[in-house]
Nucleic acid binder design. Sequence first.
DNA 1: GTCTATAGCCAGATAGAC
DNA 2: GTCTATCTGGCTATAGAC
Lengths: 188, 188
Amino acid sequence: MTNSVPATGKRARLVAAACQAMHQQGVEKTTLADIAQAADVPLGNVYYYFKTKNDIVRAVIEAHLAEADAMLAAIEGAYPTPRARLKAVFSGLSEQSELIAEYGCPRGSLCTELDKRADGPEITAELMRVPLDWAARQFEAMGRPDARDLAVELLARYQGTALLANAFHDPGLMEREAARVAEWIDAV
Amino acid sequence: MTNSVPATGKRARLVAAACQAMHQQGVEKTTLADIAQAADVPLGNVYYYFKTKNDIVRAVIEAHLAEADAMLAAIEGAYPTPRARLKAVFSGLSEQSELIAEYGCPRGSLCTELDKRADGPEITAELMRVPLDWAARQFEAMGRPDARDLAVELLARYQGTALLANAFHDPGLMEREAARVAEWIDAV
DNA sequence: GTCTATAGCCAGATAGAC
DNA sequence: GTCTATCTGGCTATAGAC
Protein backbone atom coordinates (compact mmCIF):
# COMPACT_ATOMS: atom_id res chain seq x y z
CA MET A 1 0.00 0.00 0.00
CA THR A 2 1.62 3.23 -1.14
CA ASN A 3 -0.56 5.76 0.64
CA SER A 4 -0.82 5.45 4.35
CA VAL A 5 -4.00 6.86 5.82
CA PRO A 6 -3.33 9.86 8.07
CA ALA A 7 -3.91 9.01 11.68
CA THR A 8 -6.70 11.54 11.97
CA GLY A 9 -8.53 10.20 8.91
CA LYS A 10 -8.96 13.64 7.46
CA ARG A 11 -9.38 12.33 3.95
CA ALA A 12 -12.16 10.02 5.04
CA ARG A 13 -13.86 12.83 6.93
CA LEU A 14 -13.69 15.05 3.87
CA VAL A 15 -15.21 12.39 1.63
CA ALA A 16 -17.98 11.68 4.10
CA ALA A 17 -18.76 15.38 4.44
CA ALA A 18 -18.72 15.80 0.66
CA CYS A 19 -21.09 12.84 0.20
CA GLN A 20 -23.63 14.32 2.55
CA ALA A 21 -23.33 17.92 1.38
CA MET A 22 -23.56 17.01 -2.29
CA HIS A 23 -26.59 14.86 -1.64
CA GLN A 24 -28.37 17.57 0.27
CA GLN A 25 -27.33 20.70 -1.63
CA GLY A 26 -26.26 19.29 -4.99
CA VAL A 27 -22.76 19.23 -6.45
CA GLU A 28 -22.75 22.74 -7.88
CA LYS A 29 -24.00 24.48 -4.77
CA THR A 30 -21.61 22.62 -2.49
CA THR A 31 -18.47 24.69 -1.97
CA LEU A 32 -15.11 23.45 -0.78
CA ALA A 33 -15.59 25.71 2.21
CA ASP A 34 -18.82 23.84 3.07
CA ILE A 35 -17.03 20.51 2.92
CA ALA A 36 -14.00 21.71 4.84
CA GLN A 37 -16.13 23.16 7.59
CA ALA A 38 -18.31 20.08 7.94
CA ALA A 39 -15.21 17.88 8.11
CA ASP A 40 -13.54 20.28 10.52
CA VAL A 41 -10.56 20.75 8.22
CA PRO A 42 -9.12 24.14 7.26
CA LEU A 43 -9.95 25.14 3.71
CA GLY A 44 -6.41 25.29 2.42
CA ASN A 45 -5.66 21.82 3.71
CA VAL A 46 -8.30 20.27 1.48
CA TYR A 47 -5.93 20.73 -1.44
CA TYR A 48 -3.39 18.48 0.13
CA TYR A 49 -5.85 15.60 -0.28
CA PHE A 50 -7.60 16.64 -3.49
CA LYS A 51 -6.10 18.66 -6.31
CA THR A 52 -9.45 19.92 -7.62
CA LYS A 53 -13.14 19.88 -6.77
CA ASN A 54 -13.64 17.30 -9.48
CA ASP A 55 -11.30 14.97 -7.65
CA ILE A 56 -13.57 15.21 -4.65
CA VAL A 57 -16.55 14.37 -6.83
CA ARG A 58 -14.71 11.32 -8.11
CA ALA A 59 -13.94 10.24 -4.55
CA VAL A 60 -17.61 10.67 -3.64
CA ILE A 61 -18.66 8.41 -6.51
CA GLU A 62 -16.09 5.82 -5.52
CA ALA A 63 -17.39 5.90 -1.96
CA HIS A 64 -20.92 5.28 -3.24
CA LEU A 65 -19.69 2.41 -5.39
CA ALA A 66 -17.83 0.81 -2.51
CA GLU A 67 -20.90 1.11 -0.31
CA ALA A 68 -23.10 -0.44 -2.98
CA ASP A 69 -20.68 -3.33 -3.47
CA ALA A 70 -20.59 -4.01 0.23
CA MET A 71 -24.36 -3.82 0.55
CA LEU A 72 -25.05 -6.14 -2.36
CA ALA A 73 -22.42 -8.62 -1.18
CA ALA A 74 -23.93 -8.63 2.31
CA ILE A 75 -27.37 -9.31 0.91
CA GLU A 76 -26.07 -12.10 -1.30
CA GLY A 77 -24.57 -13.68 1.78
CA ALA A 78 -27.69 -13.28 3.87
CA TYR A 79 -30.36 -14.49 1.44
CA PRO A 80 -30.18 -17.74 -0.53
CA THR A 81 -32.67 -17.10 -3.36
CA PRO A 82 -32.49 -14.35 -5.98
CA ARG A 83 -36.08 -13.41 -5.31
CA ALA A 84 -35.43 -12.88 -1.62
CA ARG A 85 -32.33 -10.86 -2.45
CA LEU A 86 -34.17 -8.54 -4.81
CA LYS A 87 -36.87 -7.93 -2.27
CA ALA A 88 -34.29 -7.35 0.46
CA VAL A 89 -32.48 -4.71 -1.57
CA PHE A 90 -35.64 -2.88 -2.42
CA SER A 91 -36.98 -2.92 1.11
CA GLY A 92 -33.62 -1.74 2.39
CA LEU A 93 -33.71 1.18 0.01
CA SER A 94 -37.22 2.20 0.87
CA GLU A 95 -36.37 2.25 4.56
CA GLN A 96 -34.65 5.49 3.71
CA SER A 97 -37.90 6.99 2.46
CA GLU A 98 -37.64 10.06 4.69
CA LEU A 99 -34.16 10.88 3.44
CA ILE A 100 -35.21 10.30 -0.16
CA ALA A 101 -38.31 12.45 0.19
CA GLU A 102 -36.16 15.27 1.49
CA TYR A 103 -33.16 15.05 -0.82
CA GLY A 104 -33.80 12.42 -3.48
CA CYS A 105 -31.82 9.25 -4.13
CA PRO A 106 -28.15 10.06 -3.48
CA ARG A 107 -26.93 8.09 -6.50
CA GLY A 108 -29.73 9.08 -8.85
CA SER A 109 -29.50 12.80 -8.27
CA LEU A 110 -25.72 12.59 -8.54
CA CYS A 111 -26.07 10.93 -11.96
CA THR A 112 -28.53 13.52 -13.15
CA GLU A 113 -26.43 16.41 -12.01
CA LEU A 114 -23.05 15.14 -13.13
CA ASP A 115 -24.26 14.38 -16.60
CA LYS A 116 -24.72 18.10 -17.17
CA ARG A 117 -21.24 18.85 -15.97
CA ALA A 118 -18.93 19.13 -18.95
CA ASP A 119 -16.00 17.69 -17.02
CA GLY A 120 -17.98 15.12 -15.07
CA PRO A 121 -16.06 11.90 -14.39
CA GLU A 122 -16.77 8.96 -16.69
CA ILE A 123 -17.27 6.66 -13.71
CA THR A 124 -20.63 8.32 -13.08
CA ALA A 125 -22.59 5.74 -15.05
CA GLU A 126 -21.15 3.01 -12.82
CA LEU A 127 -23.53 4.25 -10.15
CA MET A 128 -26.34 2.77 -12.21
CA ARG A 129 -24.44 -0.03 -13.92
CA VAL A 130 -23.50 -1.78 -10.69
CA PRO A 131 -27.04 -2.22 -9.35
CA LEU A 132 -28.41 -2.87 -12.84
CA ASP A 133 -25.97 -5.71 -13.54
CA TRP A 134 -26.54 -7.14 -10.11
CA ALA A 135 -30.32 -7.18 -10.54
CA ALA A 136 -29.96 -8.69 -14.01
CA ARG A 137 -27.86 -11.53 -12.56
CA GLN A 138 -30.58 -12.24 -9.99
CA PHE A 139 -33.29 -12.40 -12.63
CA GLU A 140 -31.05 -14.65 -14.74
CA ALA A 141 -30.64 -16.96 -11.79
CA MET A 142 -34.43 -17.12 -11.70
CA GLY A 143 -34.27 -18.43 -15.24
CA ARG A 144 -35.76 -15.36 -16.89
CA PRO A 145 -34.55 -14.84 -20.46
CA ASP A 146 -35.66 -11.18 -20.27
CA ALA A 147 -33.52 -10.62 -17.19
CA ARG A 148 -32.02 -7.38 -18.45
CA ASP A 149 -35.42 -5.84 -19.24
CA LEU A 150 -36.69 -6.78 -15.82
CA ALA A 151 -33.62 -5.26 -14.18
CA VAL A 152 -34.16 -2.02 -16.10
CA GLU A 153 -37.79 -1.97 -15.05
CA LEU A 154 -36.88 -2.55 -11.42
CA LEU A 155 -34.20 0.11 -11.23
CA ALA A 156 -36.26 2.59 -13.25
CA ARG A 157 -39.19 2.15 -10.90
CA TYR A 158 -36.98 2.79 -7.90
CA GLN A 159 -35.30 5.83 -9.39
CA GLY A 160 -38.52 7.26 -10.78
CA THR A 161 -40.36 6.77 -7.51
CA ALA A 162 -37.50 8.42 -5.63
CA LEU A 163 -37.76 11.39 -7.97
CA LEU A 164 -41.51 11.70 -7.38
CA ALA A 165 -41.24 11.21 -3.62
CA ASN A 166 -38.66 13.98 -3.60
CA ALA A 167 -40.69 16.31 -5.81
CA PHE A 168 -43.72 15.98 -3.53
CA HIS A 169 -41.69 15.59 -0.33
CA ASP A 170 -43.81 12.55 0.42
CA PRO A 171 -42.08 9.53 1.98
CA GLY A 172 -45.39 7.66 1.87
CA LEU A 173 -45.27 7.65 -1.90
CA MET A 174 -41.95 5.80 -1.76
CA GLU A 175 -43.21 3.28 0.76
CA ARG A 176 -46.39 2.61 -1.18
CA GLU A 177 -44.58 1.95 -4.41
CA ALA A 178 -42.01 -0.20 -2.61
CA ALA A 179 -44.79 -2.45 -1.40
CA ARG A 180 -46.19 -2.72 -4.92
CA VAL A 181 -42.76 -3.53 -6.33
CA ALA A 182 -42.36 -6.29 -3.74
CA GLU A 183 -45.64 -7.81 -4.98
CA TRP A 184 -44.38 -7.50 -8.53
CA ILE A 185 -41.15 -9.33 -7.71
CA ASP A 186 -43.17 -12.14 -6.16
CA ALA A 187 -45.37 -12.36 -9.24
CA VAL A 188 -42.56 -12.28 -11.81
CA MET B 1 -54.13 42.64 -19.88
CA THR B 2 -51.72 44.90 -18.06
CA ASN B 3 -48.48 43.89 -19.73
CA SER B 4 -48.28 44.24 -23.47
CA VAL B 5 -45.81 41.90 -25.14
CA PRO B 6 -42.97 43.79 -26.83
CA ALA B 7 -43.21 43.59 -30.57
CA THR B 8 -39.90 41.82 -30.88
CA GLY B 9 -40.88 39.10 -28.42
CA LYS B 10 -37.67 39.40 -26.48
CA ARG B 11 -39.16 37.95 -23.37
CA ALA B 12 -40.34 34.87 -25.24
CA ARG B 13 -36.91 34.46 -26.81
CA LEU B 14 -35.28 34.67 -23.41
CA VAL B 15 -37.57 32.06 -21.92
CA ALA B 16 -37.04 29.71 -24.85
CA ALA B 17 -33.28 30.13 -24.63
CA ALA B 18 -33.38 29.56 -20.88
CA CYS B 19 -35.46 26.39 -21.32
CA GLN B 20 -32.97 24.90 -23.68
CA ALA B 21 -29.83 25.98 -21.85
CA MET B 22 -31.10 24.81 -18.48
CA HIS B 23 -32.08 21.46 -19.90
CA GLN B 24 -28.72 20.93 -21.53
CA GLN B 25 -26.36 22.47 -18.98
CA GLY B 26 -28.45 22.44 -15.81
CA VAL B 27 -29.81 25.43 -13.93
CA GLU B 28 -26.70 26.19 -11.89
CA LYS B 29 -24.27 26.10 -14.77
CA THR B 30 -26.47 28.25 -17.00
CA THR B 31 -25.45 31.88 -16.70
CA LEU B 32 -27.53 34.90 -17.56
CA ALA B 33 -24.88 35.68 -20.15
CA ASP B 34 -25.49 32.27 -21.78
CA ILE B 35 -29.21 32.96 -21.97
CA ALA B 36 -28.81 36.52 -23.19
CA GLN B 37 -26.40 35.47 -25.91
CA ALA B 38 -28.57 32.58 -27.11
CA ALA B 39 -31.60 34.89 -27.23
CA ASP B 40 -29.58 37.63 -28.90
CA VAL B 41 -30.37 40.11 -26.17
CA PRO B 42 -27.77 42.28 -24.42
CA LEU B 43 -27.02 41.11 -20.90
CA GLY B 44 -28.16 44.25 -19.12
CA ASN B 45 -31.49 44.17 -20.89
CA VAL B 46 -32.39 40.83 -19.36
CA TYR B 47 -33.07 42.59 -16.09
CA TYR B 48 -35.80 44.62 -17.67
CA TYR B 49 -37.79 41.41 -18.14
CA PHE B 50 -36.65 39.43 -15.08
CA LYS B 51 -35.57 40.91 -11.77
CA THR B 52 -33.52 37.87 -10.75
CA LYS B 53 -32.27 34.57 -12.11
CA ASN B 54 -34.89 32.84 -10.02
CA ASP B 55 -37.58 34.71 -11.90
CA ILE B 56 -36.25 33.20 -15.11
CA VAL B 57 -36.39 29.75 -13.54
CA ARG B 58 -40.00 30.36 -12.60
CA ALA B 59 -40.80 31.44 -16.14
CA VAL B 60 -39.13 28.29 -17.48
CA ILE B 61 -41.29 26.11 -15.24
CA GLU B 62 -44.40 27.97 -16.33
CA ALA B 63 -43.45 27.44 -19.95
CA HIS B 64 -43.08 23.70 -19.33
CA LEU B 65 -46.45 23.62 -17.57
CA ALA B 66 -48.15 25.44 -20.42
CA GLU B 67 -46.60 23.05 -22.92
CA ALA B 68 -47.72 20.04 -20.91
CA ASP B 69 -51.26 21.38 -20.64
CA ALA B 70 -51.43 21.94 -24.37
CA MET B 71 -50.03 18.52 -25.15
CA LEU B 72 -52.38 16.66 -22.83
CA ALA B 73 -55.37 18.63 -24.07
CA ALA B 74 -54.45 17.85 -27.68
CA ILE B 75 -54.19 14.15 -26.91
CA GLU B 76 -57.49 14.18 -25.10
CA GLY B 77 -59.06 15.68 -28.18
CA ALA B 78 -57.41 13.24 -30.57
CA TYR B 79 -58.03 9.94 -28.78
CA PRO B 80 -61.38 8.81 -27.42
CA THR B 81 -60.40 6.13 -24.90
CA PRO B 82 -58.22 6.60 -21.81
CA ARG B 83 -56.09 3.63 -22.78
CA ALA B 84 -55.31 5.09 -26.19
CA ARG B 85 -54.51 8.43 -24.59
CA LEU B 86 -52.07 6.95 -22.10
CA LYS B 87 -50.29 5.06 -24.83
CA ALA B 88 -50.21 8.14 -27.04
CA VAL B 89 -48.57 10.25 -24.34
CA PHE B 90 -45.98 7.65 -23.60
CA SER B 91 -45.11 7.03 -27.21
CA GLY B 92 -44.90 10.77 -27.81
CA LEU B 93 -42.43 11.11 -24.97
CA SER B 94 -40.26 8.25 -26.10
CA GLU B 95 -39.98 9.73 -29.56
CA GLN B 96 -37.59 12.13 -27.90
CA SER B 97 -35.33 9.29 -26.85
CA GLU B 98 -32.23 10.83 -28.42
CA LEU B 99 -32.72 14.10 -26.59
CA ILE B 100 -33.43 12.29 -23.34
CA ALA B 101 -30.37 10.07 -23.69
CA GLU B 102 -28.25 13.15 -24.15
CA TYR B 103 -29.72 15.48 -21.53
CA GLY B 104 -32.34 13.60 -19.52
CA CYS B 105 -36.02 14.44 -19.22
CA PRO B 106 -36.35 18.25 -19.21
CA ARG B 107 -38.97 18.25 -16.47
CA GLY B 108 -37.45 15.48 -14.37
CA SER B 109 -33.96 16.89 -14.22
CA LEU B 110 -35.40 20.32 -13.48
CA CYS B 111 -37.30 18.88 -10.51
CA THR B 112 -34.23 17.10 -9.22
CA GLU B 113 -32.04 20.13 -9.52
CA LEU B 114 -34.46 22.72 -8.18
CA ASP B 115 -35.24 20.73 -5.10
CA LYS B 116 -31.66 21.26 -3.94
CA ARG B 117 -31.90 24.98 -4.50
CA ALA B 118 -32.76 26.66 -1.23
CA ASP B 119 -34.81 29.33 -2.96
CA GLY B 120 -36.34 27.08 -5.62
CA PRO B 121 -39.87 28.11 -6.60
CA GLU B 122 -42.70 26.18 -5.00
CA ILE B 123 -44.32 25.59 -8.38
CA THR B 124 -41.61 23.02 -9.15
CA ALA B 125 -43.68 20.09 -7.97
CA GLU B 126 -46.40 21.06 -10.44
CA LEU B 127 -44.14 19.66 -13.15
CA MET B 128 -44.93 16.20 -11.80
CA ARG B 129 -48.37 16.89 -10.36
CA VAL B 130 -49.89 17.85 -13.71
CA PRO B 131 -49.00 14.64 -15.58
CA LEU B 132 -49.64 12.52 -12.49
CA ASP B 133 -53.16 13.85 -11.99
CA TRP B 134 -53.87 13.54 -15.68
CA ALA B 135 -52.77 9.90 -15.76
CA ALA B 136 -54.76 9.16 -12.61
CA ARG B 137 -57.89 10.57 -14.27
CA GLN B 138 -57.36 8.29 -17.26
CA PHE B 139 -57.01 5.20 -15.08
CA GLU B 140 -60.09 6.27 -13.15
CA ALA B 141 -62.01 6.52 -16.38
CA MET B 142 -60.96 2.92 -17.01
CA GLY B 143 -62.72 2.04 -13.77
CA ARG B 144 -59.59 1.23 -11.81
CA PRO B 145 -59.92 1.86 -8.05
CA ASP B 146 -56.11 1.91 -7.73
CA ALA B 147 -55.86 4.67 -10.35
CA ARG B 148 -53.48 6.79 -8.33
CA ASP B 149 -51.04 3.91 -7.73
CA LEU B 150 -51.09 3.07 -11.41
CA ALA B 151 -50.41 6.69 -12.31
CA VAL B 152 -47.44 6.78 -9.92
CA GLU B 153 -46.12 3.56 -11.42
CA LEU B 154 -46.46 4.91 -14.95
CA LEU B 155 -44.79 8.25 -14.29
CA ALA B 156 -42.08 6.66 -12.14
CA ARG B 157 -41.24 4.21 -14.91
CA TYR B 158 -40.95 7.02 -17.40
CA GLN B 159 -38.81 9.21 -15.17
CA GLY B 160 -36.64 6.35 -13.99
CA THR B 161 -36.07 5.09 -17.51
CA ALA B 162 -35.19 8.59 -18.65
CA LEU B 163 -32.62 8.80 -15.86
CA LEU B 164 -31.07 5.47 -16.88
CA ALA B 165 -31.10 6.26 -20.60
CA ASN B 166 -29.33 9.50 -19.77
CA ALA B 167 -26.79 7.87 -17.46
CA PHE B 168 -25.84 5.33 -20.13
CA HIS B 169 -26.41 7.71 -23.05
CA ASP B 170 -28.50 4.97 -24.63
CA PRO B 171 -31.69 6.00 -26.47
CA GLY B 172 -32.38 2.33 -27.14
CA LEU B 173 -32.96 1.75 -23.45
CA MET B 174 -35.72 4.36 -23.49
CA GLU B 175 -37.36 2.90 -26.58
CA ARG B 176 -37.24 -0.64 -25.24
CA GLU B 177 -38.86 0.30 -21.97
CA ALA B 178 -41.46 2.40 -23.76
CA ALA B 179 -42.52 -0.65 -25.74
CA ARG B 180 -42.80 -2.69 -22.55
CA VAL B 181 -44.83 0.04 -20.87
CA ALA B 182 -47.21 0.08 -23.83
CA GLU B 183 -47.77 -3.64 -23.34
CA TRP B 184 -48.34 -3.04 -19.66
CA ILE B 185 -50.97 -0.39 -20.36
CA ASP B 186 -52.77 -2.82 -22.65
CA ALA B 187 -52.69 -5.51 -19.97
CA VAL B 188 -53.84 -3.31 -17.09
C1' DG C 1 1.71 17.73 6.56
C1' DT C 2 -0.76 21.82 8.18
C1' DC C 3 -2.79 26.27 7.81
C1' DT C 4 -3.36 31.57 6.71
C1' DA C 5 -3.77 34.78 3.54
C1' DT C 6 -4.81 36.00 -0.81
C1' DA C 7 -4.75 35.87 -5.89
C1' DG C 8 -7.68 35.52 -9.87
C1' DC C 9 -11.84 34.76 -11.90
C1' DC C 10 -16.52 34.98 -13.00
C1' DA C 11 -21.28 35.27 -11.87
C1' DG C 12 -25.43 38.04 -10.55
C1' DA C 13 -26.97 42.38 -10.18
C1' DT C 14 -27.02 47.69 -10.68
C1' DA C 15 -26.26 52.58 -12.41
C1' DG C 16 -27.22 55.54 -15.44
C1' DA C 17 -26.59 57.44 -20.38
C1' DC C 18 -29.38 57.24 -24.38
C1' DG D 1 -37.34 50.45 -23.33
C1' DT D 2 -32.52 49.59 -24.49
C1' DC D 3 -27.74 48.87 -23.63
C1' DT D 4 -22.71 49.65 -21.82
C1' DA D 5 -19.90 49.68 -18.19
C1' DT D 6 -19.09 48.34 -13.82
C1' DC D 7 -19.68 47.05 -8.90
C1' DT D 8 -19.73 43.45 -5.50
C1' DG D 9 -19.31 39.08 -3.61
C1' DG D 10 -18.17 34.42 -3.49
C1' DC D 11 -15.72 30.55 -5.16
C1' DT D 12 -11.67 27.68 -6.80
C1' DA D 13 -7.14 27.42 -6.40
C1' DT D 14 -2.29 28.84 -5.06
C1' DA D 15 1.71 30.77 -2.42
C1' DG D 16 4.36 30.22 1.05
C1' DA D 17 5.27 30.42 6.28
C1' DC D 18 5.40 27.04 9.82
